[in-house]
């Protein structure tokens, strides 16, 4: 396919040119326009679950004029010349407020959502709180990082509607999970709990524990044994990396450098 000419569009009153298929979010980032997101991560496929990135677009009609639509910036690819995007219109703010109120009702205790809501002058939701402990917004970032980046697919979104949850198969300890913690790292709400006790790393949500490996030199924990094993299988790295902690590795390297006199 021929590379198409850049498209001329307007975003928040700024006229600019943009490569076709760029998402609104990508463009906004480039221009320093801030759009809130929860379920988006640059390294993970988009899913459009949280809706807080909603913006307004005016799409030119063939017969002239524009039709206005509310779209999610993270997964809306720019394809039309003359698109007029507004990330802060009154309508956008109203929609975002509503979404944040709904999210706040689902996860009333989550700091990130509280803060986000506060920015839109919302401190309380008018919707009923079903479960004050709930912390998961079902954005699916954890399931996607596990599948796309780690390559394990240990967890998935299970069930429909208000019964939907992230679970391991049968809600039992997972054989696939290596306790790498990537899920907890990407989770926007801190819903995934990892604890370290008795030489083990346990991801509470997935009911899964993995042994921790110790540094051969100092005895500090290096990380989940299963993770080290997994990395070992995939990339060739010097054996040391898997046996020593970061500090001891550096010390050893220093010593080697000094004794070889380089």
């Amino acid at each position: 396919m021929l590379r198409s000419d850049p498209l001329k569009i307007t975003i928040d009153g700024i006229e600019t040119e943009v490569e076709k298929e760029t998402t609104i979010l990508q463009l906004a980032k480039k221009l320093g326009i801030e759009i809130p997101t929860l379920c988006h991560h640059d390294a993970i496929s988009t899913y459009g679950a949280c809706r807080v990135c909603t913006v307004e677009v005016g799409i030119p009609r063939s017969g002239g004029g524009k039709r206005t639509r509310m779209v999610t910036a993270c997964n809306y690819p720019i394809r039309d010349n003359g698109l007029n995007i507004n990330t802060k219109s009154e309508r956008v703010l109203a929609v975002r407020k509503m979404i944040l109120e709904l999210l706040l009702a689902r996860c009333p205790g989550v700091k990130r959502i509280q803060d986000m809501a506060k920015e839109y002058e919302i401190t309380e939701s008018r919707f009923p709180i079903e479960n004050p402990e709930e912390e998961c917004i079902l954005c699916g970032l954890c399931t996607r990082v596990c599948q796309e980046i780690i390559g394990k697919s240990a967890i998935s979104l299970v069930g429909r509607g208000f019964e939907r949850k992230v679970l391991t198969p049968f809600d039992e300890p997972s054989e696939d999970c290596i306790a790498c913690g990537a899920c907890a790292y990407v989770c926007p709400t801190g819903a995934i709990k990892i604890v370290q006790e008795d030489g083990k790393l346990t991801i509470k949500n997935w009911k899964t524990s993995r042994e921790l490996a110790k540094c051969l030199e100092c005895g500090e924990y290096v990380g989940s044994e299963a993770v080290l094993q997994y990395i070992k299988e995939r990339v060739s790295l010097p054996e040391d990396i898997f046996k020593l902690c970061e500090k001891c590795r550096r010390k050893k390297l220093q010593k080697e450098l000094i004794t070889t006199g380089k």
Binding site: Q147, L157, T168, P169, S174
Partner: peptide, 25 residues
């Protein structure tokens, strides 16, 4: 049955989590 899902996952090389998700959907 659970064991059939495990079996299908293994034979088709599909993550068990996906089969479980489909089975619940």
């Amino acid at each position: 049955p659970k064991e059939t899902m495990l079996f299908v996952a293994r034979e088709l090389k599909i993550p068990l989590s996906r089969i479980y998700s489909v089975a619940n959907f």
